[in-house]
Design a protein around this nucleic acid. Structure first.
Lengths: 402, 402
DNA sequence: CTAATTTGTAAACGGCCATGACGAAATAGT
DNA sequence: ACTATTTCGTCATGGCCGTTTACAAATTAG
């Protein structure tokens, strides 16, 4: 009944496996998968030199991975250089798939991603979820999941796990939504309300967005700060290629970093939090706009149209964001800052003031700020890919479920 | 000539070793050392159940460790329970030792710590180093190191490495002091100025202080923030048992987190940094005291004597620290905050305002703040222990140097 | 067309942990 | 006191796994 304790979280060639010969084998299988997945089609010899094993050892590993359907033999490479050409190996486009889901304030979305990282099926339902009870929302989501799973199965894919991105704080058990202000959900255990046929992981959408940036971004380093504002302002802290979650799973709450310690009261009990200056509500108020559907799109359109009041509101939000980020950069010394989620769309009007604030407050060269090209798709893709990464990180684990 | 590329930094049972049988063996040797080191004297059977290997496997591992002198057989345990009593194993009190050194603003200190974690030799020289050139200071330090090494050798210890704590920023190469404001050093490569007979590691004193807290603290969790103020205000960020260093090695610069963004100018180029409110200079000025020797002790004495102006200065510093920490806690969600270094001595007057500020600004239960019992010894002990940990993390590596 | 190079596989080898059995040394029960 | 039981450490055996060595296959260089 209950799904196996599927620990999708630690990423990087399958750590935490026992240091026994079997564990070694499993880790080496993972390293082969990672090499092939990351470096495109590769011959056995190329894999061997990538991961530091001998060709013979890689041969047996590859045989096993082909037998279990995780790897595919593409056929002989086109020569080009001297010597016998290798036989290209690629990650299979059939077999296990990661199912990602997103519970947004204004929509539900589900997609299936194969081991190659390609989206093979999608389903979306628009319409607000603000204030709706968890049960009906999750029933709808379950419907979408089943549809996507069915679509995938028609193409030879089977679900290796389900990862759900939610706009709120998630406990370290990766199942319960502790608090989702914009849905008005508290302590909802998604594990009991979603299909139990495959392993489930739940996480904050900012975290999944950050992971998407890490895995899918073009030039993303292994150490960066991914800032995203959907509702509150959240940040994903990626340190050395893995997510910093904090003891309770609440790390990255950039929105409640004090900017003006004596500023206006915040719902969190503190005063002058970043959210009071750069949060969605605050910006809309400063811009003189009403709350409604597609608030971010509205801001972007008005700013593009030259509405000076909106532009000023965004400039000031950028400045506040700059102050809060200065603190974060001093603490974490990341390689880059990436603006994602809603911020990506507003970047043209936020960036100037943000960057000048950072430059003013930084001694050396300021930390580069870039804009995510994933935009609002980030969390959904990150969720689906987290399942895929879990498979790549322990191919033997998933093979056992065949 | 040049020391081997000794990577003392990653801690945790020898990771990053290749996934081959030899690497497995090395990691298992490390796991045995860790088990014995952490859990006191242990029989082979107890070690086996701790690390999940069979008794037979542990036997051969232990044999090897005894042969290389890293473990010692203490003899039969006193029974107590049924069955043949085990033979107690303990980490050897002879063999490799970690040499720790500290370059303080007002002193130099060196110590040797054996694998059991006990300090076996020390040497100190008092007197300011403020403004002195690196060469004479490091010549003196070299003298102290040689003395401590000689003392250790008389007890059967040989130096496995030297770790130096400095009051400033250290590059990620773990050798160069990028900037040490209070010594007025810039880009000094300690590697060329210190004995090259054993592997060298250099790090910030705040980092070593934090590691000392992690390794030696009584109830320290694996996730905490260690705040220490010697000169500037530095923090060591310990995440899941390892130090967060940042891309350039500059993480933890709590002193330059903005507290009042429009406050007084700071040397870093920004305005209203924490250091302007809680830094040593700022507090002394607010307290109406002169700069001189043992400034922290002076503050503590005056505060203890009831000097209201000093107490107010410390209260206000505590409040500012609380604001900056609020930001850090929101970002990192650690399990605890530990005050170390100079702050430990001033804690009685800082804590009340600090904690009330944290409580005011935190929604749930506030993060517990504790005071380090290591105090000013932290960085020195952390440095020495970092070498010891490196040995425990890869005993085979050190055995090769016998 | 030959020499050189590279790939993939097969067989022998060696290292390492697991398994199972055994003697040793203690306790528990009679 | 004596036996049964439990636990410890070790040894021999076996299986797993990566390495080494050798070799055939496939390509380029000359």
């Amino acid at each position: 009944m209950s799904a196996p304790p599927h620990e999708a979280r630690p990423t990087g060639p399958g750590r935490a496996l026992p240091d026994t010969q079997q564990g070694m084998r499993r880790r080496n299988l993972a390293r082969v998968m990672h090499a092939v997945s990351a470096e495109g089609p590769l011959s056995r010899a190329a894999v061997a030199s990538h991961i530091g094993l001998t060709r013979a050892a890689v041969s047996t590993l590859v045989d096993e991975l082909i037998r279990t359907g995780l790897l595919e033999e593409l056929g002989p490479e086109r020569p080009g250089r001297v010597g016998r050409p290798g036989s290209a190996l690629a990650v299979s486009g059939r077999g296990p798939a990661g199912i990602g889901a997103e519970i947004g304030v204004d929509h539900l979305a589900v997609c299936a991603v194969d081991l190659r990282g390609e989206v093979r099926a999608r389903a979306v339902r628009h319409g607000t979820n603000r204030g709706r009870a968890p049960e009906p929302v999750l029933r709808e989501l379950t419907g979408l999941v089943r549809r996507v799973v069915a679509d995938g199965e028609r193409e030879g894919l089977w679900p290796a796990g389900l990862a759900v991105a939610v706009p709120g704080l998630v406990g370290r058990d990766a199942r319960t939504v502790v608090r989702a202000p914009n849905l008005d959900w508290h302590d909802v255990d998604l594990g009991t309300l979603l299909p139990g046929e495959f392993p489930l992981t739940v996480d904050n959408e900012a975290n999944f967005g950050g992971l998407a940036e890490l895995w899918l971004g073009v030039e993303t380093p292994r150490d960066f700060l991914h800032v995203s504002a959907e509702i509150g302002i959240g940040a994903a802290l990626v340190v050395d290629g893995s997510l910093l979650r904090g003891t309770r799973g609440f790390a990255g709450e950039l929105g409640h970093v004090p900017v003006h310690p004596d500023g206006p009261d915040c719902v969190c009990g503190s005063r002058g939090c970043l959210e009071q200056y750069a949060g969605e509500e605050a910006v809309l108020r400063a811009a003189g706009l009403e709350l409604g559907e597609d608030r971010v799109g509205l801001l972007a359109r008005r700013a593009a149209d030259g509405d000076e009041r909106v532009r000023r509101a965004l400039r000031e939000a950028g400045t506040a964001l700059g102050v809060a980020l200065t603190g974060a950069l001093n603490l974490l010394d990341p390689e880059a800052v990436v603006l994602g989620g809603a911020l990506a769309g507003l970047a043209p009007w936020l960036l100037p003031s943000l960057e000048s604030e950072l430059a003013r407050r930084t001694a050396g060269p300021p930390c580069p700020v870039s804009v995510s090209r994933l935009g609002p798709e980030g969390p959904l893709l990150g969720a689906a890919h987290s399942v895929v990464r879990a498979v790549l990180d322990d191919p033997a684990g998933v093979a056992g479920r065949l």
